[in-house]
Design a binder for these strands. Structure first.
Lengths: 204, 204
DNA sequence: AAATTTACTAAACAGTGTTCATTAAATCCA
DNA sequence: TGGATTTAATGAACACTGTTTAGTAAATTT
């Protein structure tokens, strides 16, 4: 009746093959250049076969998104380990921006893709890695608030303020808007703005 | 030799017709739903005709972008008129966010579309409306800095910090990331974060 | 009236995501 | 082992996309 273990393993293997090819194509050709047909060609199967392993293209993008969070954590782990909460938040911001700048397509997938998500419950589950990240930032903000004795500041709003700023910077950089403000200074603009944000938020 | 005035007027009229149809389709079907073929069908011409009036689809999107800035200015003008620079900046932020939230597709076109722009000089010209907006914000920041006697703060960085924050908030809202943080509270989250940003930046 | 310019389009090219009937192979059961 | 059944994979189609080009019909000029 049910699939044998070998069968299931083989099924999982082809699924992995598809994701691997998708990953390669994403890196080489960008988000726009990633197509079902190119994936199929890369793994030498027909396009229709892809649909035996994934319901649609969005499902593939979704799984890529989860892989992307794995890549991002490599940037973030050292920042997470920082002792001083204020310094930690600054490091998180820098690492986040660095990841965003060096992995445009991944970043887009993870933070700018609109999900059809009719069922937000499920989505909250599926974006749990992003959520965990935000929760960690929020906890760090709480620590920083306590440490500095800041009164009347909601750590969730603070975390969102910080996230929005860095997310905004990365997106402005990706759409070349920072180049328009000051040519060839994108990296410096991001660093300086991040520092200014830290200074104003934590009143150093 | 040259086109008669009537001819030129007619040419401009069809161009306007194309842009009008594009605008309608953008509003009805969103950015993804906007296609050359749909525009052609709407104005009852063949798709090829579009290419006699615009070099490519990007050129149409570009002109739509400029129309979008016209729409946006309706939101911003009252904020620009505000006397107190600090209050003015806050109002600009709120109006900007309001425009972004109520005009997702326009916003995307104006602030998230990547331009092929090989020649950044030209682009800076073509994005002059956005640039003018940013310059006005920068000037307001300078005024606020002087008024509050804030030391060692670069108004350009301050303006960028503020812009990034609001831009980030709008984009996070558009990609449903704020819904994940706190369901059905997107508007409040934006308002509160904007207030927190104002408070921390201007130390009120 | 003939020649030329202008305005427009049908058809094609190369691509996209997705579906479905069909085939070939593997597995199961008698 | 032989026949029935399940499974895996696909070719071909559908309905789209942006864009190009050769060709036509109408308006204008000579």
């Amino acid at each position: 009746m049910g699939l044998s273990e070998r069968k299931e393993r083989e099924k999982a293997e082809l699924k992995e093959l598809i994701l691997d090819a998708a990953k390669r194509i994403l890196l080489k050709n960008g988000k726009e250049g990633l197509s079902i047909r190119k994936i199929a060609h890369a793994i030498e199967y027909s396009p229709a076969t892809i649909y035996l392993y994934f319901p649609d293209k969005d499902a593939i993008l979704h799984e890529l998104m989860e892989i992307g969070f794995g890549l991002m954590s490599k940037y973030l782990v050292p920042a997470f380990a920082e002792q001083d909460p204020v310094q930690r938040i600054h490091s998180i911001g820098k690492a986040y921006a660095k990841f965003g700048m060096e992995n445009k397509d991944w970043y887009d997938l993870m933070f700018n893709s609109e999900k059809p998500m009719k069922h937000i419950e499920k989505c909250a589950e599926e974006w749990d890695q992003g959520m965990a990240m935000f929760n960690f930032l929020t906890a760090s903000c709480k620590q920083a608030i306590d440490l500095l004795g800041l009164k009347g500041i909601d750590e969730r709003i603070l975390a969102l303020h910080f996230w929005s700023t860095v997310h905004g910077l990365v997106n402005l950089a990706h759409s070349d808007r920072l180049e328009i403000i000051e040519r060839n200074q994108t990296r410096q603009l991001i660093d300086r703005t991040l520092e200014a944000a830290m200074a104003s938020i934590f009143r150093t």
